[in-house]
């Protein structure tokens, strides 16, 4: 299903922002006792000084947006049916749809299609309102292809003490990522994520990993796609500090890390800064076509508790991401370039 026109999509986004501006509490649309509808979205603008990336060049693009609806239905006291519909420039898609059931005080199981729990942002990739920047760190970019977006299968969550342990097993679902879906099939997947809430108030540590078998439809051979991330997240008082390191082993070894610091000034303003590094192919780590170092500075302004606007500037050295997204050919890009990004983020 596609929305019939951008006019309708714009009207939906405007309505959603209007709902957010009226500071509606988290339970935005409550249909009886059993079903709730929530949503989030963003409208972004991206402009670059040189290389094309995220569909943007020096003329800029507004084609950077998502609108998502989440429908949750309580089937009984311990069982829920969840589904999420995404609409972005690639069209409308089912982000996830699964049934979960609580088996005990600390155990929940689920079956269906789910976002992949990987790192701090893997399962909230499009929810910009819950993130700190307008453009996610490089390790989350489709261009880097370090993580799959969703899987179809089963998962279990166990929460003993200060730990949250998640495990999953199934098959990769590609939702329009850089992986060439035409050349692969049957990506069997196994993985997990462990989160530890440390005794230091506000500090979480996390480790995520998954492995999937990628079968080449031409040769019939299966290769292993392995990806892992180590994450630290410190949110206390007005501080929000995040750091992650990730590594992928497949046709090329990719690794990257970032450190991001934000500090809320008063109730509305949060300036932030990030240093971001990625090397798309370790064997070519000194070639600017295959690495990218970015210094990012930005500011977030909360219009209401549910709507914010964000402006940020990226100073880049190397153009590994534009090459990874196939928007620039290796050797043909500008080594030093800038990118400006802005976004209006909302949830309801």
């Amino acid at each position: 299903m596609r929305f019939p026109s951008y006019r309708l999509k714009g009207a939906l986004a405007a309505a959603a922002i209007g709902v957010g501006l009226h500071a509606v509490p988290a339970s935005a649309v409550d249909i009886g006792d059993r079903t709730e509808i929530h949503g989030f979205g963003f409208q972004g603008y991206v402009q670059t000084s040189g290389n094309e990336y995220l569909g943007a060049n020096h003329r800029g693009t507004w084609d950077y947006n998502t609108l998502s609806l989440i429908i949750a239905t309580k089937l009984d006291d311990k069982t829920k049916l969840w589904s999420m519909l995404d609409n972005n420039p690639d069209g409308t898609r089912l982000g996830w749809m699964f049934v979960d059931r609580q088996l005990g005080e600390n155990i929940t199981v689920k079956a269906g299609q789910s976002k992949l729990p990987w790192g701090l942002y893997g399962d909230i990739l499009d929810a910009r309102a819950l993130q700190q920047s307008a453009v996610l760190p490089a390790i989350y970019s489709d261009a880097a292809d370090m993580r799959d977006e969703a899987y179809r299968g089963g998962g279990i969550t166990y929460t003993p003490g200060n730990f949250i342990l998640e495990g999953f097993l199934g098959q990769v679902v590609n939702l329009g990522q850089a992986v060439d879906a035409g050349s692969v099939k049957d990506r069997r997947l196994i993985g997990g994520r462990a989160t530890y809430k440390t005794p230091v108030e506000g500090l979480r540590l996390m480790a995520s990993a998954f492995s999937s078998g990628v079968e080449d439809t031409i040769t019939g051979k299966t290769k292993n796609f392995r990806s892992a991330a180590l994450s630290a997240d410190f949110v206390r008082d007005n501080w929000d500090v995040k750091a992650e390191y990730a590594k992928k082993t497949f046709e090329a070894d990719t690794q990257g890390y970032y450190v991001q610091v934000g500090y809320m000034v008063g109730e509305k303003w949060t300036p932030y800064a990030r240093y971001d590094y990625i090397v798309m192919d370790k064997a070519k780590k000194s070639d600017p076509s295959y690495y990218q170092k970015s210094a990012v500075v930005g500011i977030d302004y909360k219009i209401t508790g549910s709507v914010s606007v964000r402006l940020e500037e990226h100073l880049n050295h190397g153009y590994g991401l534009p090459v990874g997204s196939a928007e620039v050919l290796p050797g043909a890009g500008k080594t030093n370039w800038r990118m400006f990004a802005a976004s209006l983020n909302f949830l309801f």
Partner: peptide
Amino acid sequence: LSKMKITWAKNTFTGKALPPKV
């Protein structure tokens, strides 16, 4: 309060849990 709102938005948007009844 603002941090708790974010916590529940994350819970909702990842299909982890629905916010408390108001």
